[in-house]
């Protein structure tokens, strides 16, 4: 299968990329690692007139320490994210479950967020960690909290001329444990449901819990009811199982070939209990 014709721009700096994108009109598409976009182009489900390829914008690949946050450049590949010791544990652990090694060599951190696929693993993690997306446009720089970034199925809060340049991920202390629990049918396939959990523990008690759900609606969802139920309680598997009973509240899971909505609600409860237990026992 061969993509439809498009014109191609290859900027080498963020400024050039922003200029190229704003000059390209509404039918432009940003090419990051291409591991989601290339199949869409080949199937002609995406028909952009202009492709702005960020492959050579090296400044966007940087991962740096910013004190309370780690800044992860949008063009950092999954491969680099997994291997960089600066990257917060939940981000690295989750990224290691994305697709397969060849896809992780090309696929990027920012690309998988801007793509806003409800079955993508990283959006739920950004939501659970209260990360901040940093976007650039000809109007300047804009911070977008993760809670406002994922708007709908394959739709982010980015304007057509806005470029996601990176993400500020808050660091959490040593008293936090993390886990991403993903249920999928084959090794490299998308999550039927995924659960990102961060748990703060002290002396067998849960100080705070944060939970992001993958594929339980058109965008990632915070399991707030479970967070409240688990916080202040014992850090035990039984307590987590009981708290996780609320995991499907306020969700809107799809029904598709991989599972019905009811099945997904069941998975959310089971996987949330597992994720909390694993996060608390690290």
């Amino acid at each position: 299968m061969i993509p439809a014709e498009f014109s191609y721009v290859r900027p080498s700096t963020v400024d050039e990329a922003v200029a190229a994108l704003s000059g390209a009109g509404e039918d432009a598409k940003v090419l990051a690692g291409g591991q989601s976009l290339m199949p869409l182009l080949r199937l002609r489900l995406a028909l952009p007139e202009v492709l702005v390829d960020l492959d050579r914008v090296d400044e966007m690949r940087e991962i740096r320490d910013e004190g309370d946050n780690v800044f992860i450049g949008a063009m950092a590949t999954h491969y680099n994210v997994i291997r960089d010791p600066l990257v917060p544990a939940l981000v690295a652990k989750t990224t290691a479950t994305v697709a397969d090694p060849a896809v992780r060599h090309r696929g990027t951190f920012g690309g998988s967020l801007a793509h806003a696929d409800p079955a993508g693993d990283l959006p739920a993690v950004m939501l659970a960690l209260d990360a901040t997306m940093v976007a650039r446009s000809p109007r300047g720089s804009r911070d977008i909290p993760a809670a406002d970034f994922f708007v709908d199925y394959l739709t982010s809060a980015l304007e057509p001329d806005e470029l996601l340049v990176g993400v500020r991920v808050p660091k959490l202390g040593d008293d936090w444990g993390f886990h991403y629990e993903k249920f999928h049918r084959t090794a490299q396939s998308w999550a039927v449901v995924g659960v990102a959990a961060a748990v703060q523990r002290s002396n067998g008690t849960v100080g705070a819990a944060r939970i992001g759900l993958t594929n339980m609606g058109p965008y990632p969802i915070r399991a707030s009811a479970v967070e409240s139920a688990a916080s202040g309680g014992p850090a035990s598997a039984d307590a987590f199982r009981s708290a996780a009973e609320a995991a499907a509240e306020a969700t809107d899971p799809p029904s598709d070939l991989n599972g019905s909505a009811d099945y997904r609600r069941h998975l959310a409860r089971v996987l949330t209990a597992r994720a909390l237990t694993a996060a608390a026992t690290v």
């Binding site: 591991q35 290339m38 491969y79 060849a102 090309r106």
Partner: peptide, 15 residues
């Protein structure tokens, strides 16, 4: 590609 595995159906020749 530069020593790392890639699926060549998902990379443009120009890349």
């Amino acid at each position: 590609m530069d020593g790392l595995s890639v699926k060549s159906c998902s990379v443009l020749a120009v890349q």
